[in-house]
Design a protein around this nucleic acid. Structure first.
Lengths: 154, 154
DNA sequence: CCCTGAAGGTTGCGCGCGCAACTATTTGTG
DNA sequence: CACAAATAGTTGCGCGCGCAACCTTCAGGG
């Protein structure tokens, strides 16, 4: 034993992976915002609902599980999109609690215009990675998602 | 040319990297929350301020730039931490607009207790990746951060 | 020197979010 | 069949966030 105080561990935030992931996610969101926000007047919840419903008509419940958004956030996004006539809801006579959400004609038009832009924007972002780097990054992403149970399908 | 309608591109959200990053960042935050939130009563802004000030005494401006948080978010976190006697502020006589923020004795104790737990939690998370996978993932993270200009130092 | 503009920080305000509570409907069970 | 529990979805509420405006102090020209 000696008189020195115990060496104190320090945490450099800019090297702390959880912080870096938060910062990256925010940065990427801003990188994309110009497309769905400025150009189409959608916020993130609305855009996620559009993207989900564009694949297949489904219930609000399914959207919430699939996007991992809180059901109230989904509910409000749906109300707003319906007011803009981008989506519509059909009652299910078999279970009158739920309603099928699907794109309207105008919603389909917006979706068809928006999706290629979003995919192109994603491509432009990932183009900063060499093919080998991209592969490694996505592999890590896969494993982390599985570890945290984020990949579980609804 | 033929009579078929143009094949419509669809966007599966669960394969869209920007969405996956947001979801992962949220998941990791929750994974860490138990430590700084439940156990030490800190929210994310407070925890980031503590982590920054624990490395070196600095101004609110520096904290904001370093953590990429809005200055009002930093300001409010500082007020709360000061009320809990975890940090203190010393006026700078050379420039009386700014104040140096540093840990109090109690703040230093909390920091010394918290940091090893946070680092251990990070280690536990990243342990789901094989060494080669971890390396690849971090390399991709580096490149993306540089591409988006998130690495710029204040 | 003043006076204009900039910089460090704080505060008023509106908005979006999640929690909890609620309605309406369906399912399960004795 | 009735009643309890579960499920789909909506809404009231409080809180945290960012924007813009503000206060204070400093720097730099005329």
């Amino acid at each position: 034993m000696n008189g020195r105080p115990p060496a104190e561990q320090t945490l450099e935030l800019s090297a702390f992976v959880p912080f870096r992931l938060n910062r990256l996610a925010t940065g990427v969101s801003q990188y994309l915002a110009a497309i769905y926000q400025a150009r189409f007047g959608l916020d993130i919840p609305q855009w996620r609902v559009m993207a989900t419903v564009g694949e297949v008509a489904c219930t609000a419940q399914y959207i919430a599980a699939s996007t991992r958004m809180h059901k109230t956030r989904v509910s409000r996004a749906i109300v707003e999109l319906e007011a803009r006539d981008l989506i519509e809801r059909a009652s299910n006579e078999r279970d009158r609690r739920e309603r099928q959400v699907r794109l309207t004609k105008a919603g389909r038009r917006l979706y068809t215009e928006l999706v290629p832009l979003a995919l192109e924007r994603e491509r432009a972002l990932l183009a900063c990675l060499a093919p080998q780097q991209l592969h490694g990054f996505l592999e890590g992403l896969d494993v982390l998602e599985r570890f945290l149970g984020l990949d579980a399908q609804p």
